[in-house]
Design a protein around this nucleic acid. Structure first.
Length: 800
DNA sequence: CTTTCGGCG
DNA sequence: AAGGCGCCGAAAG
């Protein structure tokens, strides 16, 4: 880190020297006109302003890293062990759901190389290069392989060719034959010539390898077809051949080459397309080992979604490759948010979306512009209006209305500020947006007064969109409901509270952050008490960290799920022998053991455990070596052996994985859909959905985590005797006091779409999530995005 | 909810 | 060829 500072400083000095040099020039060359020099100096200062800001940003990242490292130092061996167990349980679940049956293709136009060619050969500029190339291939070529293919920007696209591959098997050869256009060879200049020459040479005449699975092309067909055969090519039926065909047709059409990746999911496909770029392709065969092998030494930076900051942070933890990412999974689960570490886990296992879901509803829309300094309020306001106008136009195209307007400003020092304001009624038109934006701008101008606000960028964003349901109900039911609420008290379960309060409170369910975050926070308080020997974990986690073991290691974790032997085992926490046929009991024992260490946690957690039913239906096989190791570790501890080194260096140990599935515990929020996916529970969930939130309102300790997580409270299906239930949607009194039927009515009343959506996704929704969605739809608060993510894929699996 | 950040093409 | 730009979603506070 010191090195970095040095580099930065010297670069700064260079900048100064440069400017001094310019001054010398100025003195020496009197003929040079003032303006030009001023301009150069301006550029230089602009550069340094920019650079200064880059340095600042870099230091902020360094601080983040420092903070993370401090957090890491405080992690105890017990915490790490527990995390390891939990993460590994998840790993097994993920493995079990691994889907290798899709064939996803990622096509990436070699635009950059085209640009280089163009630079070298200005004659080629006439060509309608990438202009609309992808949207054209939209229709003309790609759709033949996947009618639902997904263009990503102008120069790349995903295709799911699974179905095409099946159909193609029955295709006659002629349907797979394509004629080589000779037009391309007429291109003037060496490039036109080179390209077609390259193609002919490499892909047709002299490289049978490229058509390895099309035997017919090579021999007899050549003879049969006579002259035309010289100009045609037949592609085989394998995925590779399909993609070659696509790339061939793209090149014929656009004169541009494309690279492609073939893999069982989008993430891998994208990484594959990068492999043999330009003008190449790569395939990961649909086998688990092939996937893991591909990832083994792959730098995490290659993964979509991992940018330079994440790379740097992980590097600070000694993580550079994907296998290292896997090895450190336990540590990562303690250091990062749940979304992040789960994403890391998906990456390291090579999991991603196996189908091309059209991206969900957009959550915001914005427009912004960079310009040379603007410092008069007048100009700034008119610019602001202009942006609002543009944005309003775009919003209208998609029929969107939002509640939050955000103004973004970048001053001449490259410092970015955003100011947001959320209004009660939604905005969509230029005027509506501007009304909000101008106030934000105004207060920013005021804040620097009497100095002028010197900006180089301004942007306006609208977010917090209304859903369809809301648009419908906004004016009608909800408003009337809210209005009338004061008069008649629609939900009189707690007459002393206004409905406003009711909903506000409900929407504040405090479960941001991961399970680990919460538990970590709790443990932080009594860490001193519970960790008599901070370095306990060193030997427990002996880890050679070699990537060769990566494949083996993940295998071990999963192998366990198939083993159901072992009736006696040693508790990995207290090291006492336990014998039982009842796995649930064993799990409970370990849970208790683990949590005994975390004094204050214990009560809550064991309460949670005892009410959980997702016990794995298999028994772990614990190898003796593991037990030995644990016991050795124990004796070391007792002997007071000091290993003060940081635990993370050896946090991952294949042995520890062998007991991964013992712990059934997981907070419901992060609970994956068990393969049991038991209908009964889901039914119960649905029934609980509404009664629960009503009954919650009666509870004093409403805000407590256990309740919002929905772990222990029982379903009460009957409202109190004297309550009158008023449907919050249609605002009519309901005769029934049975909450189930009341809820059914509300179901009907509310837009079905939402309910249906919830039902479809209920596998991955917890009660809390359901309630959140409900509350959101109910109260009209849509500022939060959907929290449900497909459990079979990363939280952020596809780049936009 | 507001503000900042990370990442992508 | 590298980095600025416009945009989005999500983390952080």
């Amino acid at each position: 880190m010191d090195d970095m500072k040095k580099v930065a400083n010297s670069s700064c000095n260079d900048g100064v020297l440069l400017r001094m040099g310019l001054n010398d020039n100025k003195a020496g060359m009197e003929g040079l006109d003032k303006e030009k020099i001023n301009k150069i100096i301006m550029e230089a200062t602009k550069g340094s302003k920019f650079y200064e800001n880059e340095l600042k940003k870099d230091q902020q990242v360094n601080q983040r890293i420092e903070k993370m490292m401090q957090l890491k130092e405080k992690i105890t061996a017990q915490q790490l062990l527990k995390a390891q167990l939990q993460v590994d349980k998840l790993v097994m679940e993920l493995e079990q759901n691994r889907n290798l049956s899709s064939t996803i293709v990622h096509i990436d136009m070699d635009a950059f190389y085209a640009a280089v060619e163009m630079r070298d050969n200005p004659e080629l500029k006439e060509k309608p290069i990438a202009v609309g190339s992808m949207s054209m291939l939209v229709r003309e070529i790609l759709a033949e392989y996947d009618p639902n293919f997904m263009p990503m920007g102008l120069d790349e696209a995903y295709l799911n060719i699974t179905e095409h591959l099946e159909e193609r098997l029955n295709w006659p050869e002629d349907r797979r034959r394509f004629f080589i256009s000779t037009e391309s060879t007429t291109g003037i200049g060496k490039d036109g010539m080179n390209m077609s020459a390259k193609f002919n040479k490499a892909e047709v005449s002299s490289s049978p390898v490229l058509f390895e699975d099309d035997t017919s092309l090579m021999d007899d067909n050549l003879e049969q077809r006579g002259l035309s055969v010289e100009n045609s090519v037949v592609f085989g039926t394998s995925a590779e051949e399909v993609v070659k065909e696509i790339r061939f047709r793209i090149e014929q059409k656009t004169q541009l080459t494309a690279s492609a990746g073939i893999a069982p999911n989008t993430m891998l496909a994208k990484m594959c397309s990068d492999r043999n770029k330009p003008n190449g392709q790569y395939r990961i065969s649909p086998e688990r080992l092939a996937v893991l092998d591909f990832l083994k030494d792959l730098p995490i930076r290659k993964v979509p979604g991992i940018g330079k900051v994440t790379e740097k942070m992980l590097k600070a933890l000694g993580i550079v490759t994907c296998s290292e990412l896997y090895h450190q999974r336990a540590l990562l689960s303690l250091l990062f948010s749940e979304v992040s570490w789960r994403n890391f886990l998906d990456i390291s296992l090579g999991l991603g979306s196996t189908h091309l879901e059209k991206d969900g509803e957009r959550k915001s829309m914005s427009t912004e512009r960079t310009f040379s300094e603007i410092n008069t309020a007048e100009d700034q306001y008119s610019l602001c209006r202009e942006l609002c106008r543009d944005l309003a136009q775009e919003l209208q195209k998609e029929g969107l209305k939002g509640k939050t307007v955000t103004l973004k400003l970048k001053n001449v020092n490259f410092e970015v500020k955003t100011r947001a304001s959320t209004v009660l009624s939604s905005v969509a038109t230029e005027e509506e947006i501007f009304t909000v934006a101008k106030d934000l701008l105004g207060s920013e101008i005021d804040s620097v007064a009497p100095h002028p606000l010197r900006i180089r960028l301004m942007g306006v964003r609208v977010s917090g969109f209304l859903t369809e349901e809301e648009k419908k109900y906004q004016q009608k039911s909800i408003t009337s409901f809210l209005k009338s609420g004061k008069e008649i008290g629609s939900l009189r379960l707690q007459p002393e509270k206004s409905n406003q309060e009711y909903f506000t409170k409900n929407s504040q369910a405090p479960h941001r952050g991961s399970f680990f975050d919460q538990k970590r926070a709790a443990r932080q308080l009594n860490r001193e008490n519970i960790s008599p020997n901070k370095s306990r974990g060193k030997q427990l986690f002996h880890d050679d960290n070699s990537s060769e073991d990566f494949v083996e290691e993940t295998k071990k974790v999963t192998d366990l799920q198939n083993s159901n032997v072992c009736k006696i085992f040693t508790c990995p926490v207290c090291f006492e022998k336990q014998s039982s046929n009842n796995l649930e009991e064993l799990n409970r024992h370990i849970d208790e053991c683990l949590n005994r260490m975390c004094v204050k946690d214990t009560v809550e957690i064991s309460k949670n455990y005892s009410s959980r039913e997702n016990t794995p239906n298999f028994l772990p096989q614990l190898k003796n070596e593991y037990v030995d190791k644990c016991q050795k570790n124990k004796t070391d501890q007792l002997a007071g052996t000091d290993q003060s080194a940081s635990v993370s260096d050896n946090s991952a140990n294949s042995n520890t994985e062998k007991i991964g599935q013992i712990i059934p515990d997981k907070s419901p929020r992060e609970q994956q859909p068990s393969n049991l996916s038991d209908i009964a529970r889901n039914v119960c969930m649905k029934q609980c959905l509404f009664p629960k939130r009503i009954s919650q309102d009666n509870e004093d300790d409403f805000g407590k985590t256990e309740h919002t997580e929905g772990t222990s409270s029982s379903c009460s299906f009957e409202a109190k005797e004297d309550t009158v239930l008023v449907c919050p949607v249609c605002n009519s009194e309901q005769k029934t006091t049975n909450l189930v039927s009341f809820n059914r009515h509300v179901d009907v009343c509310l837009n079905k779409g939402l309910i249906q959506e919830l039902t479809e996704k209920e596998d991955c929704l917890t009660k809390t999530d359901n309630m959140e969605n409900f509350n959101r739809a109910f109260s009209g608060d849509l500022s939060k995005g959907q929290q449900c993510t497909n459990p079979s894929q990363g939280a952020k699996s596809t780049a936009r």
